[in-house]
Design a protein around this nucleic acid. Structure first.
Lengths: 113, 113
DNA sequence: TTGACATATATCGAATATCGATATATACTT
DNA sequence: AAGTATATATCGATATTCGATATATGTCAA
């Protein structure tokens, strides 16, 4: 059950940074991992991911190296120190946003997030 | 402390529909109410709101009537039956999105929202 | 009374983000 | 041999928001 794609706007880089804070991954792997972890709510498209990865590299938040996997060359991405800092900021920002939404929607504020 | 504006993408109409499900409001009032309720996290701009309101009216989710307030004409917006249905759908969608985010971010899933 | 600021609505162009379509190439399966 | 999955990439179209700008009235202080 994928959600309105515009809801993802702005949170995609956060999701990617989060995944890479756990281990190095290649693009295709990120798409599959996100899909599984979110129980098919996030269906990140390749046309969204690859330009975003290049962008994060050029901003210094990720580094990239190639590795051979049975004839196929995979591009692994690794989060940098600046990337970890960025992740922390983005995570905090998202929690602020979510709390504000819950507040307006009339629910209790979830202090845990 | 306003958050990254791209995070709002897609949730703005949900916020507006939610406000109007409580009472009729005019545009300027919505901007101020959202700002207060979210503790300055949401700073909806007039350039975003007014076209959005017109759009929601043309889609049949809102109706509009004018009222005089000390020389100034205010345009009050009222949520329609279809608007209420839309609100319910959008609310459900946002909760699905938020739960998926929390899931990926490694937090517990907040069943309440 | 004049100037500044708040109220109130509106439009337009620029910037940003995502997707769909398309392209390329290899591996695996049937 | 053909089709599907893996894997990366680019481009144009679409959607959303904002900043800037415009207009007009009310209020308050100097």
């Amino acid at each position: 059950m994928p959600v309105d794609k515009t809801l993802l706007s702005g949170s995609t880089s956060l999701l990617i940074l989060k995944l890479l804070s756990e281990k190095d991954m290649y693009g295709y792997e990120m798409i599959e991992t996100l899909e599984k972890r979110s129980e098919n709510v996030f269906e990140l498209k390749a046309g969204t991911l690859y330009p975003l990865l290049h962008n994060l590299v050029s901003q210094g938040f990720l580094s990239c190296y190639e590795e051979d996997a049975g004839g196929k060359v995979r591009k692994y991405y690794h989060i940098t120190v600046e990337g970890l800092r960025r992740l922390k900021d983005k995570e905090k920002e998202w929690k602020e946003y979510a709390n504000a939404m819950i507040h307006v929607l009339g629910g209790v504020i979830y202090e845990g997030i």
